[in-house]
Design a protein around this nucleic acid. Structure first.
Lengths: 348, 348
DNA sequence: TGCCGCATTGTTAACGTGTGCATGAGGCGT
DNA sequence: ACGCCTCATGCACACGTTAACAATGCGGCA
């Protein structure tokens, strides 16, 4: 450890104690509004504290209290608007409960994700929220070995030993697909995420399941893969457009993918929804300002973040009211103008 | 302080010392790879440590070292993609340097922003990065009184006492405006941000300045205000469209505003760029997937975050090489298809 | 043999705060 | 006057780690 620090050494309760002619414990009590100290002394101490700009050291306090009032949030990347919305919700209620949040991104790299969790453990965070982890059950034993409460968001862990908040991907995909079939489409396609996320598997499963039960639908429905970004969506949509039997309706893994698909369709000289309908998943804030505005399945991203933090707070509080283990949200189908009735000319 | 914590008490170096029949300081040295301990003892100690899942307590270490290896990042809201990109850059290099980052959002509320900084001070962060603060010089004395290194991003503080990383808003706005004039537009408008940000003032100043010097431009150019979001941009664009002399080219404070403007123009039955050209500022990842793809001024958001953290690391390191105080980036004009030659029909 | 130096380990204090326990000063009732 | 109770405060230790300093043992060398 190296000691030469920039900046002056901050003042401590001992400095205040010396100035007030009391012991440091009296200062400690006074600043915590303990009823044990005489009002006059307390007043005097508080005055010295504020005028000298004293700030209690959370690190010293944490050492004795064994509570840091911090939580760690793991995210693949904060640059993904979905994660940003979730973190926004987390941070909001964490702040309300007096917790500070450590943010760390894994960049979808399992090694880095492990490193992040280790660093959280060393920092003695009170709890951890893992958002859309791409790391499988492999390291869940590590998380459980930390004996720190952990809440997962959108990470369907088969073990079920952990608390989780997630969207019902299967039901959401069903709603989208039924909407498209209801409009009269028969040639549907799905643009997925190639990283093997559970959410992708579930959305595809919901899609396939509805297709299977629809007599009029062309089977098997085509499936191509992007990477969850707009660029990946555009490239995948390009593949679909290059085939001689392009679909009339495309369901995309998420809104970013859908935005890329929209872009590719426009580049190809076709119109949405007259030539091809496009639907997404998430309802990012920007999606209502796409051209055309995107039909999608709204995920309460902010709300899911909030709930995850509320669960964590429950786990960290002293009252034993245990929250539900699995908390599943149902999304709302938001119909905008990127989906419509297929034009007769293109049909068949 | 309340003691009943969930989870077991983590093991300490004393536990390891007992098990290895050495003193705790030997354990401390061994785990830090000090050459002072005998290789055999070190090996034995390390073995016990790993097998028992020991994790050093960063909080105890911080108490003695007076360094927490953490930084605080203040942001208006992480849900703004611009901030998310910046934070992504910060987090990336912070991670590389071994720092953990506290993320806190002010929601543009000065009271909350002050609270956030106080909490950072109590947590004894080694440094602070403030991104696009809407709080003026009012509380900069507070920040300086903390005697903690602070780096501002896109916050032109007149005092100049602090380190800052920013984009050259005036020059950027000039480039955009000259581009629009060069296409042949004469009726230009600016959609600003009503919150009085310095960046808005500078972009508007650059815009106005170029307009002033262009004989063919209609003066004064119209200026309306949004709030930096797509919804605000759509609403402001609506005002422009409602007037009988709508502009043929609109420069927007940022890309989100521009996306809203695009949406409003489409809703109004007009085409971009045939009827109205639209330009933004930032070059968000999504902007190249707009319809049409957005002409904008690229801000190296990630790079600015990275540089801010690099400066902070320099300030925190022991070598006295002091970085530049003011670091100004020049953006790149990215010409896409949302801007074009004004159609003759509309032109006066 | 006695001394010096080196290698290795132990002892102790410190970081800043919280709290159990002891202490002392009054007040009050008998 | 004495004992007891309450109120206010100080003392001492704990939290887990680091580092300055002391101590121990050993080999070499005069």
């Amino acid at each position: 450890m190296s000691f030469p620090v920039p900046g002056r050494k901050p003042i401590s309760i001992k400095d205040i104690a010396r100035q007030a002619n009391v012991s440091h414990s009296t200062v400690s009590r006074a600043l915590r509004n303990s009823p044990l100290v005489h009002p006059d002394t307390a007043e005097k101490i508080r005055e010295i504290a504020t005028s000298s700009g004293y700030r209690v050291s959370a690190v010293a306090r944490s050492l004795v209290s064994r509570r840091t009032q911090t939580i760690g949030v793991v995210v693949t990347t904060i640059a993904d608007p979905f994660n940003a919305e979730v973190v926004s919700g987390i941070e909001d209620v964490a702040n309300a409960f007096g917790y500070s949040v450590f943010l760390a991104s894994s960049q979808s790299d399992p090694v880095r994700e492990l490193g992040v969790v280790h660093s959280f453990a060393e920092r003695r965070v009170d709890g951890i929220i893992v958002n859309s982890s791409r790391v499988g059950s492999l390291y869940q034993e590590l998380l459980s070995s930390l004996s720190i409460p952990v809440v997962f968001i959108n990470n369907h862990n088969p073990g079920g030993f952990a608390y989780s908040v997630s969207i019902d991907d299967v039901a959401g995909a069903r709603q989208i697909t039924e909407h498209l079939l209801g409009l009269g489409h028969t040639r549907l396609a799905y643009i997925g995420d190639r990283f093997g996320l559970q959410s992708n598997l579930d959305r595809m499963a919901g899609f396939q399941d509805v297709i299977e039960r629809a007599p009029q639908a062309r089977r098997p429905a085509r499936v191509v893969y992007g990477d969850g970004t707009s660029a990946g969506g555009a490239q995948a949509m390009g593949e679909l457009l290059a085939s001689n039997q392009a679909p009339t309706a495309v369901f995309c893994y998420n809104d970013r993918t859908a935005q890329g698909a929209l872009s590719a369709i426009h580049e190809h000289g076709l119109r949405v929804p007259e030539d091809i309908s496009v639907a997404g998943f998430d309802d990012l804030p920007v999606s209502s300002f796409c051209h055309p505005p995107l039909t999608t399945l709204r995920q309460p991203m902010n709300g899911m973040g909030r709930q995850a933090m509320e669960i964590l707070e429950q786990l960290l509080s002293r009252n034993p009211k245990a929250p539900d283990m699995a908390n599943k949200f149902v999304g709302d189908l938001i119909i905008r103008r990127s989906t419509g009735v297929p034009s007769i000319g293109k049909q068949l």
